[in-house]
Simulated scan of single mutants.
Amino acid sequence: MPLTRRLALAALLAPAVAPGIAWGQAAPWPSRSLRFVSSSPPAGASDILTRTLAQAVQDQTGQSVVVENRASAGGVVGSDYVAKSMPDGLTWLTTNVGPQAIVRALQPSLPYDTRADFRHVTIIGTLPLVLVVNPNTIPARDLAGFIALARAQPGAMNYGTGGNGTLHHLTGEMLKLAAGIDVVHVPYRGAQAATQDLIGGRIQAMWDSLPSAAPHIRAGTLIPLAVSGAARSPAFPAVPTVAEQGFPTVVTTNWFGMAGPARAPEDSVQGLYRELSRALATTAVKDRFASIGVEPGGMPPAETQAFVLAEIARWDEVVKRTGVTLD
């Protein structure tokens, strides 16, 4: 789904005048070092975005920004840590659609409330998925060809993902329902293992994130059939979307956002949004994001809060409709 980037018009004035600051002058933000908690492992897309923005914010503000990875349990550990952290405006979470929207429908006993425990600052970027096949085992070169093969061999073909209950898994099940095909899901413990089996011919297809699939697509070892976003990816403009190939209900995007605990101070929320907006507008950040196929975001805090709540409702419904479980 397309997300609009809007720059902040102004930062909120600090509620009190700090020592050494003239009356009527806004206090600088931040006044101390920040911590960005990444809910994904090092070197993943979310981690790359976190570290890129941390460096930019540090350069802009002159305050250090420490990046900490808390990636266990599909992002739940990092999310829970920030949800329960002191709401002092210094600790922030880089998260995505999985731990913020999808996981609620799959794990009703979460240690945090995805609706009530976070103050969302902005969507920092969006990233489509891509359906790829091994050209040595699947002759299809577009989605129609893949679906024709699947219909001719019900239950005989399979597709891999980095795990049960992921955005990739749900996207695959959405396509199965829309196209009326029987393709077996093969979950792996991470995308790398699935990619190795796809290249080795042990599975026929895979839903992958664009950054991890891109090197194999460029090398010709994997063939892209479709991307899952609402529009084609600028990184691979020749690859059509699932929607434009006849399945308009199958539109999914992995979004990455920055959030804090629910009671984070409003001046800190607006201050972080201002600095993230500045960073997202720089050439250095835009180029880094483009290198891994991520579209920069910049949605304002109020819109981001509403967007995430809508995403929670949407994925609750998708999980019910597809019957996806973590088992």
Rank of each mutant, 00 (worst) to 15 (best):
R5I: 02
L7H: 09
L13M: 14
P15W: 09
V17S: 09
A18S: 13
P19A: 11
A27G: 04
A27F: 03
P30N: 06
R35D: 03
S38V: 11
S39V: 11
L49G: 10
L49Y: 01
A54F: 04
D59V: 10
Q60H: 13
S64C: 07
V66C: 00
V66F: 09
V67Y: 03
R70L: 15
G75I: 07
V76D: 02
D80K: 09
V82G: 01
K84H: 14
L90D: 06
T95V: 04
V97P: 00
G98N: 14
P99S: 12
P99D: 14
A101E: 15
A105H: 02
A105D: 03
P108T: 06
L110G: 01
P111K: 01
D113R: 13
R115D: 11
I124L: 12
L127S: 12
L129R: 11
N136R: 15
A148N: 06
A152K: 10
G155H: 13
T161F: 05
T161W: 05
H168G: 01
H169I: 06
L170D: 07
G172W: 06
K176D: 13
A178R: 12
A179Y: 02
G180R: 03
G180I: 01
I181F: 08
D182K: 11
V186N: 08
R189Q: 14
G190N: 07
L198C: 08
I199L: 15
G200F: 02
G200P: 04
R202H: 15
I203V: 10
I203S: 08
Q204Y: 09
H216S: 08
A226V: 00
G229L: 00
A230Q: 10
A230D: 07
R232C: 07
E244H: 04
Q245M: 01
V251M: 06
V251G: 00
T253I: 04
A259G: 14
A259W: 05
P261V: 12
P261E: 08
P261K: 12
P265L: 03
S268M: 01
G271P: 04
L272H: 01
Y273V: 10
A279C: 05
A279T: 09
L280W: 05
T283W: 02
V285W: 03
R288W: 00
R288A: 15
S291W: 00
S291T: 06
S291E: 08
I292H: 11
P300Y: 09
L309P: 02
E311C: 04
D316P: 00
R321P: 00
V324F: 10
